[in-house]
Design a protein around this nucleic acid. Structure first.
Length: 774
DNA sequence: GATTGTGAGGTTTTT
DNA sequence: CCTCACAATC
């Protein structure tokens, strides 16, 4: 394939022949290109059989991209290469070896919700208190056990919770097997067991691949690591690619040590670092590096680029989250006026809850957008209903699926009945479907008749299934179950929307039938189970919005990162340990390095989260930015950063025909921006503190209508007459109760409050008048 | 057995 | 603020 020539490091990675290879691939360093070229070369020049190459990714999107590029390089043979996500690859292997691991060949894959349903059921059966053992916590506990390759018998049980959890785990596994179901963790763990087994099947699996390539290796968990090692144990031709700086899934069991410690398991590994970045401007890289270089225990490296300096990073300060949304919309508009397309822009946030306010502002401004992630299309009730029918038809022992649809649409089979059936199944460890013929007659005439009718319905559909395409079967289901009729009789807008969604899924099934290699129902169900919310693609000229996690692996010409406040980003969880903070740092790095040309960072001084307003200081990640590469916009840094003169840089105060936010303005402020933005640390000395130098321009109606924050330049804290001398960041102050501490930041608002770090009390926010210099 | 009401709890979430 | 889960109703 064409494209620019590979650089020396890339070439070395592609040309590497045998033995372990570890590639540190920085953001935007052409990683996917290297992997695909390498795989292609193995086939075309080294005569490796394509089906003896395994390339594993984490997301369907990445797998699809790789498949696509391999197709471009190799043509049709590319299809024989094993390209897939960890989970899809494992599912594929398990279908072939179901017997060897003791599961049904037609197993279904339970998602988190279905997993929870099983946990809830098991807890009821064990009569466990869901206050003491929240199902959520149990699910996380079981997941973690599986990630660590621990079965119910080799978990630690040293406290009451883990004792209960182990009990649940045991019963959960039993119920999953009875249901012919596996969860995501099972896919990996069962494949690992198989791959490490000293059996015929195990040996065959270990010898199956001549080359194993793994992408995003920093995100592997223990089981995935061992699986890779086992699958590559035949030839030791294992190539892992990753970036420890982009490890952001520790909370999901990923362990960066897998990449950092790779050289311990494979001392002879060749190590290649791809440090040339082809994506971003120098300024964006400098900003990114400023943040990540503070990270402890990382592989030493620094991205560099031949790209232009580019525009400075824009730092937007706003009053609150609505203000932030307004300013972002304003920035978007200006960039558009410069000719930027909406599709070139993305807005990132730390948590989904932040999206709403921004969405509202975008809607008000008539700017089309798409929110990536959040709820999956397949998670909608009507879709899950149809899916459950199809799954029960494929495997009637799927209890969760069966319980979902047994009374949908209502057919008079209520809770009392299903409770009895569940209890019967629990007694013998069988599925509901299995106990149905035996138990139904004991439930009285009415229930028994209805259950028999349901059974016949499912059996009739199952009988037809082999002769129908998936989409035809789905239509049949919607018809004979009366599902569509029930929706129609509802005659509401909502029911209409549901019908449309069902129509859409039928369409996607037909598409699948056209394209898939094996267009069976089972294959379709599996592909749906393994799909994620982020796989849904955005198209058209719209802005993209997503969490930073969802943004990994993507790039945009313009990136807005919102909510950069202490507590929000870095997000402060319950424990907030050092490791967690490190991960937040890497997350910020990921966010920043998504940007190609323009990076806009924003923070608000007050943010309402879940209703309650909370004050927030600018994130440390913002403080750490190199001043010379930053231009400030919006509300005056409340603690006297002399930034007000910059405030009009966002298009206020000047004729709108001069796009100040755009590249022209950027270059205008560019090189010299260091002079115009104040040096940090912020000072509270009277000089820079005085707002009087600034006209209260934004309070004019015109400015307001432009959506500028009212009173941007009028800091209300000015009104106070409290002692400020010595109240600057870093200053030592004394408090009557907490003793001596160090000023970390000064809050806007009245009365002026200061956040102070006390050795024994931690970070406190204190009204300034209660403090004296120490 | 379905419908409406209160209360807790609500990072991130590749699969 | 908003959603989901269970409870108290008709």
């Amino acid at each position: 394939m064409s494209g620019p020539p590979l650089n020396p490091e890339q070439r070395a990675a592609v040309a590497h022949d045998e033995g372990p290879l570890l590639i540190f691939a920085g953001a935007g360093s052409g990683k996917t290109r290297v992997i695909t070229h390498r795989a292609a070369r193995l086939v075309s020049e080294r005569n490796v059989k394509p089906w003896r190459i395994l390339a594993v990714t984490f997301t369907n999107k990445a797998a699809g991209e790789m498949r696509h590029r391999l197709g471009g390089l190799l043509g049709d043979v590319a299809r024989q290469i094993w390209v897939g996500t960890f989970h899809a690859t494992c599912a594929r292997i398990l279908r072939r070896h179901a017997e060897d691991v003791g599961i049904r060949q037609d197993f279904v894959i339970y998602d988190d919700g279905e997993q929870r349903a099983v946990i809830n059921r098991v807890m009821q059966e064990l009569k466990l208190d869901d206050k003491r053992c929240p199902p959520k916590r149990l699910a996380a506990w079981i997941d973690r056990a599986k990630q660590e390759a621990r079965g119910p018998d080799d978990v630690e049980k040293n406290d009451p919770f883990s004792q209960a959890a182990a009990q649940v785990y045991q019963a959960y596994e039993k119920r999953m097997r009875a249901s012919g179901a596996v969860d995501f963790g099972d896919l990996l763990l069962m494949t690992l067991r198989l791959a490490e087994a000293d059996t015929e099947a195990g040996r065959a699996l270990r010898a199956k691949f001549d080359y194993v390539l793994v992408d995003e290796f920093q995100d592997t968990n223990h089981v995935q690591y061992r699986l890779v090692r086992a699958l590559a144990s035949g030839t030791r031709n294992v190539c892992v690619v990753g970036d420890d700086d982009q490890a952001i899934y520790r909370w999901r069991g990923a362990d960066v040590r897998n990449i950092l410690g790779f050289r311990e398991d494979f001392p002879d590994a060749t190590v290649i670092k791809l440090e040339q970045n082809y994506r971003s401007t120098k300024r964006i890289l400098r900003a990114s590096h400023a943040v990540i270089s503070k990270s402890a225990s990382r592989e030493p490296k620094e991205l560099w680029t031949d790209n232009a300096d580019g525009a400075p990073v824009t730092l937007v300060a706003s009053e609150d989250e609505r203000d932030e949304a307004r300013l972002i919309v304003q920035g978007i508009r200006e960039l558009r006026r410069e000719g930027r397309s909406l599709r070139d822009m993305a807005v990132f946030y730390r948590i989904h809850a932040q999206s709403r306010v921004i969405e509202e502002a975008l809607r008000a401004a008539n700017l089309p957008y798409v929110v990536v992630g959040g709820i999956r299309f397949y998670d909608r009730a009507e879709i899950k209903d149809l899916l459950s029918y199809l799954r029960v038809i494929a495997n009637p022992h799927d209890d969760v699926g069966l319980l979902r649809i047994v009374n949908v649409p209502p057919r008079g089979i209520g809770k009392t009945t299903t409770d009895r059936l569940q209890a019967a199944g629990a007694e013998t460890g069988e599925s509901i479907w299995s106990v149905l013929p035996r138990v139904a007659p004991e439930l009285g005439k009415a229930a028994s008749t209805k259950l028999a009718a349901f059974r016949e319905l499912v059996e009739a559909l199952a009988k037809k299934a082999p002769d129908l395409k998936p989409s035809e079967l789905a239509r049949e289901v919607l018809e004979v179950t009366g599902y569509v009729r029930a929706l129609e009789s509802e005659d509401s807008a909502e029911a209409d929307a549901r019908k449309q969604n069902l129509q859409e899924i039928l369409g996607s099934m037909e598409e699948f039938e056209q394209e898939a290699e094996v267009p069976t129902l089972a294959a379709w169900l599996e592909s749906v189970s393994l799909q994620s919310a982020t796989d849904e693609v955005a198209e058209g000229d719209r802005l993209t919005m997503m969490t930073v996690h969802a943004a990994k692996g993507l790039e945009f010409p313009v990136v807005f990162v919102t909510g950069l406040e202490e507590g929000m980003f870095p997000y402060r969880g319950l424990d907030g340990d050092e490791e967690e903070l490190e991960e937040e740092r890497r997350l910020a790095y990921v966010a920043f390095t998504r940007a190609r040309e323009r990076l806009v960072l924003s923070h608000a001084f007050v943010r309402r989260l879940f209703g309650t307003p909370k004050e927030g200081f600018p994130s440390r990640f913002v403080d750490e930015l190199p001043e010379g590469d930053v231009v400030r916009v919006g509300k005056t840094g409340a603690f006297g950063r002399a930034t007000s003169s910059r405030s009009d840089a966002w298009g206020g105060g000047r004729s709108s025909s001069v796009p100040s936010y755009g590249s022209r303005a950027a270059s205008r402020f560019g090189a010299g921006s260091g002079a115009s933005s104040s040096p940090s640390p912020a000072r509270l000395g009277s000089g820079s503190w005085r707002p009087s130098a600034q006209p209260a321009r934004t309070s004019t109606p015109a400015a307001q209508s432009r959506g500028l924050p009212t009173g941007s330049y009028v800091d209300r804290s000015m009104a106070d007459d409290i002692p400020r001398d010595g109240l600057q960041r870093g200053a030592r102050v004394r408090h009557a109760k907490f003793g001596v501490g160090q000023v970390r930041d000064v809050l806007p608002g009245s009365p002026v409050r200061v956040s102070v770090q006390f050795p024994n009390w931690g970070l406190k926010q204190i009204v300034a008048s209660f403090l004296e210099p120490a």
